[in-house]
Design a protein around this nucleic acid. Structure first.
Lengths: 215, 215
DNA sequence: GACTATTCATAAGT
DNA sequence: ACTTATGAATAGTC
């Protein structure tokens, strides 16, 4: 006799099961989970915005390289704000360096940072002009395909280059600064990117898909 | 007797209750909800990243004007990709020029090329930019052992180059908008923020960033 | 900030 | 895509 000879019916499903938070290896499961959780995430963000009046933007790149974005009032508005906010009157790496003895470096680093920041904001402005949001509400941002894109792509390459150079600069800088400041630096963000993360990207981003919405 | 005269114990709390998704008017509740849900959101994003290998960035501005961000592998990495419009298949500048999409654009583009030509001493930058998109770690090569000074001079060069390209791009944009087909721009009336955000609040946007999540 | 009853999200299975 | 049992998030309370 089997293990359950009684009247109990076989459950149709086991229901949700606890999973460990680690990479899902099976591609099909991974993709399903990505879709489900992405929409869940966007939904939550939308609720947060409505409930609290907060502005929020989410950008997600699927393992396949497709980009999804959500934003209220728009992705770019929030991103712009973020970029602007982190450059203006900001305490960051510069402050961390402050009490150190590297004044010359600090000075030059700041210059570069400001430059990069200005460039970024400029780029955001261009992007904004290109794809102004649909009229107030997020989940519906159209994506246009301009020929101008070629130029943009090229500039994106430059952006990448600079980004990596900045990271390199940050590394050099941090090597100079004693390790006492390192934890601060690891958790806080420079006007640019002090992300030490070395994402071994092996994917080829291609698509451009924007968020839809639910709630 | 009341509806429950039995042995039921007094519940310590009512537990979670369903709420309507609309703005919470009471400030204290709103703030509490913001905090709780923001951390929940970040946690979810972190799980999504780990489970599926996706890259994700979230930027949230609290009703009070404070900015919180989450990013894996970093906010900037993801935001940059978004802004770059997934810079996957890369065209060199030359290739782009060979593409005949719009003559106006092409014409303008050659001006940029002239600039590039003028910046010929920085041709290295172009090469490097190409290499970036091919997925290599460009700086493992020559740049890696540059000193800080060289690095910064190098970046300054890129900066100039890009500045010029950006200016051209802007001009291009304007021309395109005012001349023939500006449908994509006319269709949507600009909300109120193109490039320069004009949010009434006079708060202090603190750059506040979490390198990455918990979990 | 912690607790807990409840709602909500979602892993598997279909 | 749909269903369902179960794991997680969280609204209200202290």
């Amino acid at each position: 006799m089997n293990t359950s000879t009684n009247i109990m019916m076989k459950k149709k499903t086991q229901g949700r099961k606890k999973i460990e938070i680690k990479k899902i290896e099976k591609p099909s499961n991974r993709h399903v989970t990505f879709s489900k959780r992405r929409s869940g995430l966007f939904k939550k963000a939308g609720e947060l915005s409505i409930l609290t009046g907060a502005e929020a933007a989410i950008i997600v790149q699927s393992p396949g390289g497709r980009v999804f974005a959500f934003g209220h009032p728009s992705v770019d508005a929030v991103v712009d704000r973020y970029l602007a906010g982190s450059s203006g009157s900001q305490h960051s790496v510069e402050d961390a360096i402050n009490d150190d003895h590297m004044h010359e470096f600090k000075k030059r680093y700041s210059e570069v940072s400001e430059d990069l920041e200005a460039e970024r904001k400029r780029k955001v402005a261009v992007e904004e002009a290109k794809r102004v949001s649909s009229g107030g509400y997020w989940w519906n941002e159209p994506v246009d395909d301009l020929g101008l894109e070629e130029l943009e792509r090229y500039m994106a390459s430059l952006e990448e280059l600079k980004k990596k150079m900045t990271m390199r600069a940050d590394e050099l800088m941090m090597n100079r600064i004693s390790s006492s400041k390192s934890s601060f630096l690891e958790v806080n963000r420079a006007p640019n990117n002090i992300g030490l993360a070395d994402y071994g990207d092996a994917m080829i981003p291609r698509g451009f898909v924007h968020g839809h919405g639910q709630i």
